[in-house]
Simulated assay, not measured.
Amino acid sequence: MKNLFGKKIKKNYEQFSNYWVQKVVHKRKKNRFAFFEEYCRDKKVIHFGCTDWPIFDPNENLHIKLNEITNILHGFDIDKEGIENLKKYVSQDYFSDFKDVNENYDVCLIPETIEHVDNVRTFLENVSKIKSKIFLITAPNCFSKEHLRRNFYGEDYFIEVVHPDHNCWYSPYTLKNQIEKYSELKVIDVILLEDDKMICCVAEKV
């Protein structure tokens, strides 16, 4: 068994009580979009964080790519200016308020959005009200080898390579824990995407 830095360690947690040791079984998928496609192709999907604020690029925008494979695609984002811009590329329905989302969906896709929200509990409580068969909620993995390698601290400073709008980092356990603590969803799978850079919790309503 190896730790996050690749060093061999004994599988021994005796210095901790079971209260502190959290084991999360996971699967791995190399390509993020290919994984989303497995669930979204020919389906009715609502996509959160669709505008990619503030780094919108039509050649890289996930919503535009999803529009090519889904049957019906709706977008949700609080960035109303970004939505107006995105409408030039995808002419389907958009929402900026949970109370306006009343349709049934096959997939509720929430990729790399939860780390941006101001109040995670309120956000997940509202997500619970969406009528969807399956929920895919992803976040950057704080324990990704790449993320660990590129951060650095000295005697009196810390250099962290992170989106300036992020409010927190997630681990496989804490993402799963918050989803199940603050919503009516049950996580049925945890997937590491893109060589472990992203965590995806696949969830359904209890």
Rank of each mutant, 00 (worst) to 15 (best):
I9G: 03
Y13M: 03
K11A: 12
N104Y: 08
M1H: 07
R121S: 14
P164H: 08
R32L: 07
Y89T: 07
C201T: 04
T174E: 09
K43F: 11
Y89L: 01
K23H: 12
V117P: 10
F143A: 03
F16S: 06
G49D: 00
V45L: 01
I114L: 14
D196Y: 04
K145N: 09
N12C: 10
V162G: 04
V107N: 02
E38G: 03
E14Q: 07
C108N: 04
C50G: 01
T138F: 01
H166P: 08
D195K: 15
D42C: 06
K43N: 09
S17F: 01
K7Y: 14
D57N: 15
Y39M: 03
G154L: 13
K8T: 12
L185F: 03
F143N: 11
L192A: 08
L175M: 09
E204A: 08
K44D: 05
P172L: 13
T113L: 13
Q92I: 00
K10M: 10
E84V: 06
S91V: 05
L66N: 02
E14C: 04
D118R: 12
E38M: 08
C142H: 08
A203Q: 00
F152P: 00
D156P: 00
Y105T: 06
E125G: 11
I69T: 00
F16W: 14
K8N: 15
I72S: 12
L73E: 02
F143E: 05
I9H: 06
L109R: 03
F158M: 12
D118P: 02
K65W: 02
I159K: 12
I78M: 10
I191P: 03
F95A: 01
V120F: 02
N59H: 11
L73Q: 10
D100I: 00
I64V: 12
I179K: 11
N67L: 04
E84L: 13
G75L: 02
I191V: 15
E146L: 13
Q15P: 07
V162C: 14
I46M: 02
K88T: 10
N167M: 14
V206R: 14
E103P: 05
Y157S: 15
R149M: 12
Y94R: 09
Y170D: 00
C108V: 11
R149K: 15
F33P: 06
Y94P: 09
N67C: 05
D57A: 06
T138H: 01
L73Y: 06
L193E: 04
V161Q: 11
E112P: 02
K65D: 05
V45I: 10
V190H: 00
Q178N: 12
P140D: 02
K88P: 03
T70F: 02
F95N: 07
V45N: 05
P54M: 04
M1N: 05
F33C: 05
E81H: 09
C142V: 15
E194P: 01
E146Y: 13
R149P: 00
N151S: 14
